[in-house]
Design a binder for these strands. Structure first.
Length: 309
DNA sequence: AACTGCAGCAACCGCGCGCAG
DNA sequence: GCTGCGCGCGGTTGCTGCAGT
């Protein structure tokens, strides 16, 4: 933990210049910057006693000179008992990569699928580790596609490496090069067409509730990474999330993290297709997760993340 | 030993969504 | 339908600690 007594640039300056900025909530007289052990203790004790929620009024009730947002963030990212501290394991890293390829920068969703990890932690890890590795490999960390399309044709001669630097077959999305004719690539191309059809379907039905619902569910899943126990929420997600859960779980279990394995990567693609096909017919609830984006936005994001040319 | 540069990560900010009145 | 409030999310900032010189 950072030294609480240290002066912080942005944070300290913001305190000084509180009147200049437009605070999200009244910060006049509120403490900012690093948390002290005493504050942590107060917050933990209060939440253990009274439970989470009502963040706006929590600081006052808990005797803290912090804004509710700050308390929530501290609890979610650091104090929660379920938060796992320590280094991200290679399998977790692989799962993050996988989920990011599927979900994009939906850190809370990704975090919800990795027990004990927070969205902030995953986001940080992505930006500081994985993103750089991918860039180093010539892969756009945002789209998971080659930064320069040209090297695609070299894929067969120089195998790409996974994030750990191991040799591996190109992952389907990354290598969605339609011109490549290896057997695995043929399958990938078919997958891409399937996804394109799915997107097309969504686009044409953007105004209709069913598509809205299933797209939202696909994008949001169950936001169980925040404000609740991961394990419990995984189990308690209502029926509609089952499809999404099993789909995401399939990424975890079926593939067992072999990014390097082209076949399993294809299996993942098949899961995408299977999921999109099956979920389109299901009357799923769509209110899982408070940060849910609109279907249109989801569509845009989905296209950006999965089939950007 | 002192200095510099960089990586890691905790914390802040603004925005958007859901909901109640 | 409109408005305000509470909350959650993603992007960004900047301090800390460590490695390299």
């Amino acid at each position: 933990m950072r030294n609480p007594s240290s002066k912080s640039g942005k944070q300290g300056a913001a305190t000084i210049e509180a009147s200049k900025t437009t605070p999200c909530c009244s910060k006049v007289g509120l403490k900012r910057g690093p948390w002290t052990p005493e504050e942590d203790g107060l917050l933990s004790a209060y939440i253990n006693r009274e439970g989470e929620g009502r963040w706006r009024t929590l600081p006052k009730r808990a005797g803290l000179l912090r804004c509710g947002k700050s308390c929530r963030l501290r609890w979610m990212n650091y104090l929660r008992p379920s938060v796992k501290r320590g280094r991200i394991a290679p399998d977790e890293e692989d799962l993050i990569l996988r989920l990011h390829r599927l979900l994009g920068n939906r850190w809370s969703l990704i975090a919800g699928r990795i027990p004990g990890r927070t969205d902030n932690e995953i986001k940080n890890y992505w930006n500081t580790h994985i993103s750089k590795k991918l860039i180093g490999q010539g892969i756009d960390p945002r789209t998971h596609k080659p930064l320069d399309p040209a090297p695609l044709k070299l894929a067969s001669s120089s195998k790409p490496k996974d994030i750990d630097g191991h040799n591996c077959e190109p992952s389907p999305v990354i290598s969605a090069g339609e011109e490549i004719s290896s057997s695995s690539q043929v399958v990938v191309t078919a997958k891409d067409k399937e996804i394109a059809r799915f997107e097309d379907h969504v686009e044409h039905n953007a105004d209709h509730a069913p598509s809205t619902v299933y797209l939202d569910v696909m994008v949001t899943g169950c936001d169980d990474g925040h404000g609740m126990s991961n394990d419990e929420e995984d189990l308690n997600c209502y029926g509609g999330d089952d499809v999404f859960s099993s789909f995401l779980n399939s990424l975890i279990t079926e593939e067992a993290f072999p990014v390097h394995n082209g076949d399993s990567a294809i299996a993942s693609s098949a899961s995408v297709i299977a999921f999109t096909a099956s979920s389109s017919a299901l009357p799923l609830r769509s209110d899982c997760g408070s940060g849910m984006m609109s279907s249109a936005a989801a569509l845009d994001e989905n296209k950006t993340g999965n089939s950007q040319a």
